[in-house]
Design a protein around this nucleic acid. Sequence first.
DNA 1: CCCCTAATTGGCGCTCTGCCAACTTTGCTA
DNA 2: TAGCAAAGTTGGCAGAGCGCCAATTAGGGG
Lengths: 215, 215
Amino acid sequence: MATSPAPRWQRLDHDERRQQILACARRLFSERNYSSVSTSEIAREAGVARGLLHHYFGTKRDLYLEVVRAVMRMPSNPVPLQSPGRGVELVITEGVDRWLEMLERNRGTWLAAIGARGLGRDPEVEEILEDAREQAADRLIEALQTYEASQAPPHLRATVRAYGGLAEAASVEWLERGRLTREQAHVLLVEGFLSIVRDVLPAVEQTTGANEPSA
Amino acid sequence: MATSPAPRWQRLDHDERRQQILACARRLFSERNYSSVSTSEIAREAGVARGLLHHYFGTKRDLYLEVVRAVMRMPSNPVPLQSPGRGVELVITEGVDRWLEMLERNRGTWLAAIGARGLGRDPEVEEILEDAREQAADRLIEALQTYEASQAPPHLRATVRAYGGLAEAASVEWLERGRLTREQAHVLLVEGFLSIVRDVLPAVEQTTGANEPSA
DNA sequence: CCCCTAATTGGCGCTCTGCCAACTTTGCTA
DNA sequence: TAGCAAAGTTGGCAGAGCGCCAATTAGGGG
């Protein structure tokens, strides 16, 4: 008569459990840095045994990289919509707007993603962040309607990436330090882009070494 | 007759030993990230017992922070010289030149310092880097000869910090990815600054919320 | 209803860190 | 020159975290 004696733990679908653990890890890693978060803590948070983390993700580091990848699905620079022939001003204005909108919604995650800097390189982490930024640069380049993203000359790509640096810094000023209002951040990002494209880029192009035929 | 039986280890002056250990730690932490460098390794490198690190620096983390501080004595943005009344163009041109010069000499260290990003905030490390950048911004603000650095309105400071982001990104493009020549980086940094000051900053100032009396 | 699959646990062994008591070197003094 | 005291240095112990694997258990199919 004693029916099955209340299972000690629940058995979840593979993907479901994986997602659940990933979510806990993401939250913890966003709050504190890598080495001050222990696998025991993540496991406790998720209500599972520590060994299960290794079953799903391998090492602690693998789990961490997975988290970084998940966070980086989010764009990391103003990314304009596809722009069938409209002026750059309009396209960039819209793109920046969507960008700021996204930031407002994902404030915490985004700040954690680009915020934490330290000494010492971590090639794998860097590669993930680098890919995200490079993709954002692609979109920006295409918004200029001069080059296909993959055909753009190095100095153009570099200049756009430099603008990306400006955009991130300005976003932090708005989101974290509050030294810009949202409107001011908007103006800074739009006018910054236009100024760089109109005035700075041509100056860079006139410089010796700009017109290497194939590189 | 057997004179003193060859000391097993040499006893160094306090500061001297400290500097020696710090140098080894600095090199290792610049190459790999925090958790993949062990205290045993640092000790071995310095030719001392592991316990000695703790004697001099406390915990591994304390040693790390000390290293970050040491690295950050180096400026982290174009820092113009004092400029008694000369034009902004000249001052910034000179400042950028010195900046690029410094980068060329300290390539490895600088890249390690600003390069490694990851998930998860580390308040103490962030504070150190933040201070260095804020100081660089002070110098840039003073180069404009409009405000004392400490009196500058928030939006001005924020705009200059945004330029700092551009400067760092552009520097990486030159130093690491080689998508800019040194000349191109120079032009980008100078023209970028001038454009931002001439065109972007006024636009930001016209924006609603720019003229808060005291903030 | 039983059994088989795979999700989940628990614990062993290793490395790393923090700490501290003991030892060695070196300069100073009688 | 021998001895002494202060400071630098060592070596090892205890605790914690991580990687791994064998045993256990939930849950569905035959």
